[in-house]
Amino acid sequence: MNLHAIKAIYMFEMSRAMRTVMQSIISPVISTSLYFIVFGAAIGSRIQHIEGISYGAFIVPGLIMLQLLTQSISNAAFGIYFPRFTGTIYEVLTAPISPLEITLGYVGAAATKSIALGLIILATAAVFVDLHIAHPLAMLAFLVLTALTFSLLGFIIGIWADGFEKLQVIPLLVITPLTFLGGTFYSINMLPPFWQKVTLFNPVVYLVSGFRWSFYGVADVNIFASLGMTALFLLICLGVIWRIFSTGYRLKT
């Protein structure tokens, strides 16, 4: 294991985050706070409790997930895309490091950032609504697992993308709609029976449901289904990355 290299990449990425703290931490916090103000404080008081939880508190896990997913993807995608774009990737590719070590450095840093962000949003939420965390360890486990999985996905996108606009395509056109439709703002039990079935094909449902369970002990789908789906997705991403490095896709000619 080339631990110095993993540390070098990790620290490099973290210092980039510190330089762009406005963009990487503050703006997601502000946009999430706006959701709390609008849906939690302003409209939330007119909405019935869902499964015994006030609406403002109900949407907290989903909103954290929304930011966790999109930020994990953008952080990791940008982290690997930028050196490809500027050409500095040559140094990483000529260094005595394995694909696993490269991935650990970049994805580890991206996941760290989005976990920190998730916790900051959680703290922000506590200012607006009355929060209970029924299963703190499960909550942390979901947070870490999701951050890692979606940072891996972002890493793949960053290698695949051949332009800056493509970096945003997946978070904006796929992840955000799936999260909005994945039970962030409602319980899937509120949907008509047909749509309840359809929505089970949305992987984000499992993430939001599992995460919400760790807060309030109520879930739309079985907690083990949630864990299983997250783990499955993690493995798929790892498989794709292994394939990318063994073929040199978009990295080597």
């Binding site: 110095h4 290299a5 070098a8 490099f12 490091i97």
Partner: peptide, 14 residues
């Protein structure tokens, strides 16, 4: 300074 230190770490040197 950071760029050169980064390279050294990347190549596995303390």
């Amino acid at each position: 300074w950071n760029a050169v230190s980064f390279s050294r770490g990347l190549f596995g040197k303390a």
